[in-house]
Design a binder for these strands. Structure first.
Lengths: 112, 112
DNA sequence: TCATCATTTCCATGATTATCGAAACATGGA
DNA sequence: TCCATGTTTCGATAATCATGGAAATGATGA
């Protein structure tokens, strides 16, 4: 993943309301939640919520889907995993991993 | 990890220069790098670098250590892992995981 | 102590971001 | 078509952030 996109995704999550929105979407799973429901759950003004949802969508962390009069938003798990993979990809820089590094490494053998 | 701290750490990484600094420190491993070397590697003004290093240190993602006239900074792998764990902790919200989720889950059995 | 080097703090500036009221834009039902 | 509802865009404002020059701080060796 490009560094610009990584920064964009980190920035998208680095805001209290957006992190809360994203977590809500993660818990909601594939069907997601209608914008209004999210606003209700987090007590956000419609314009404010819309601003943040757009930010998450632009970063590729959320997707919108129209259903009747409602617009459902859902988390993009693949994007989240890409982000995490990018953060950990140079984990320990080829050297034998520090103990603390183990939990984040996909390659358990390398990080044993 | 508290949500405020999670936001702080994400924000610390959500800036191109700071992400570059952090990656450099990750590659440098435990010994870390002197501030001057980092500035040199990334062509940053001393004041600018100092600002960003402070930001990373405040977020708990980097540590400073004095060595002679130099101050060495190193990445805190444990903090990075905490951050990732927080991002993935409600991964798939208890339901069977979506395929895309597997890579991020520590619990491979749950996310098979 | 003094000179020197490495780094940080102070300060001002410009840029970006978050918020929300009001208006506009869909969508679906009567 | 008209109305009601759900969501987004517009516009203004306040707050936060990034940058780097200049001065201050801290550490070392002479």
């Amino acid at each position: 993943m490009e560094i610009k996109q990584t920064v964009q995704r980190l920035a998208a999550l680095a805001q209290e309301n957006r992190l809360a929105i994203f977590r809500l979407l993660v818990q909601a799973g594939a069907p997601g939640m209608a914008a209004g429901r999210i606003a209700e759950a987090l007590s956000l003004a419609p314009a404010t919520l819309s601003f943040h949802l757009k930010e998450l969508a632009n970063a590729g962390l959320a997707q919108a889907r129209q259903e009747g009069r409602f617009i459902f938003y859902s988390a993009d798990f693949a994007a989240m995993n890409d982000l995490i993979a990018t953060l950990t990809e140079n984990c320990c820089g080829g050297e034998p991993c520090l103990p603390a590094c183990g939990a984040a490494c996909d390659d358990k053998q390398k990080c044993a």
